[in-house]
Structure formats: structure tokens, C-alpha cells
């Protein structure tokens, strides 16, 4: 039997990988989007595990909404990325450095 704390440890590991990926990654913006998705997956795991062990459905409903929002978010993110590629010709993190001060 998998216990609640196992799920929470798993999700916190995924969460940390996602966060670390965002801060360490200095090359590709697509990787950033993947890391954001990892964070959301960790959150979903949390919600489902809590929902199951509490016997309360609210958590599973929240997950549906998070999945939908995540899809919309990625759609907008990729659209912005396409624009960036069009104006800069590259999607590396280091091309986003014109705004400073």
C-alpha cells in the first residue's frame, strides 16, 4: 500500500526538479515550458493524493481545471515563442536580453 507521504515526497521531488530546471536552464526556452509543466504535474499529484486520502472530491475537480488552464497556458506560451523566433531568429534564453537597466 502506497501511503500519502510517498505521494507527497514524489510530488515534492518533481516540483523541485521543475523549479531547479527553470533556474539552472540557460539555453532553451522550450525547456522552461517543460519545467513549468513539471511543477503543475507535481501540484496535480498533490491534489489527487490528498483527495484520495481525505475521501473528498474537491481536489480531483481542481485537477481538471488545472489541466485545462495548463493547456491554455502552453498554447499562449508557444505562440509567444513563435513570435520571438520570428523577430529574433532564435529561441535561446540569451536572446532575451535587450531589456535592462
Amino acid at each position: 500500500m502506497v501511503s500519502l507521504s510517498d505521494y507527497l515526497i514524489l510530488s515534492s521531488i518533481i516540483f523541485c526538479i521543475g523549479l531547479a530546471g527553470i533556474f539552472i536552464n540557460r539555453t532553451n526556452i522550450i525547456t522552461l515550458l517543460m519545467c513549468v509543466e513539471l511543477i503543475l504535474v507535481a501540484v496535480n499529484t498533490n491534489f489527487i493524493a490528498f483527495s484520495h486520502f481525505l475521501g473528498n472530491e474537491a481536489g480531483q475537480i481542481v485537477v481538471f481545471f488545472i489541466l485545462t488552464v495548463a493547456a491554455a497556458e502552453v498554447a499562449i506560451g508557444l505562440a509567444i515563442l513563435t513570435l520571438l523566433f520570428r523577430v529574433r531568429g532564435s529561441i535561446n534564453v540569451d536572446v532575451t536580453n535587450s531589456l535592462k537597466g
Binding site: 507527497l8 516540483f15 521543475g18 523549479l19 527553470i22 526556452i29 522552461l32 513549468v36 511543477i39 503543475l40 507535481a42 501540484v43 498533490n46 491534489f47 493524493a49 490528498f50 481525505l54 474537491a58 481536489g59 481542481v62 488545472i66 497556458e73 499562449i76 506560451g77 509567444i80 515563442l81 513570435l83 520571438l84 523577430v87 529574433r88 532575451t96 535587450s98 531589456l99
Partner: peptide, 30 residues
């Protein structure tokens, strides 16, 4: 180029912020 870059920065940091917010929400729900 400046506007697209700003949008991308706002998007990435906003997505991280939502992720952190949701993680906190999941803990409080739990």
C-alpha cells in the same frame, strides 16, 4: 522585439508564480 521579449518574460515568471501558488493551495487543501 521588446514587446515579444517582455511577453515571454512575463509569461515564464507568471507561470512559475502560478505553479508556486498552486503548490501552496494544494498543501492548504491537504
Amino acid at each position: 522585439a521588446g514587446a515579444v521579449e517582455a511577453a515571454l518574460k512575463y509569461f515564464v515568471l507568471g507561470a512559475i508564480a502560478s505553479g508556486l501558488l498552486l503548490y501552496g493551495m494544494s498543501m492548504i487543501y491537504g
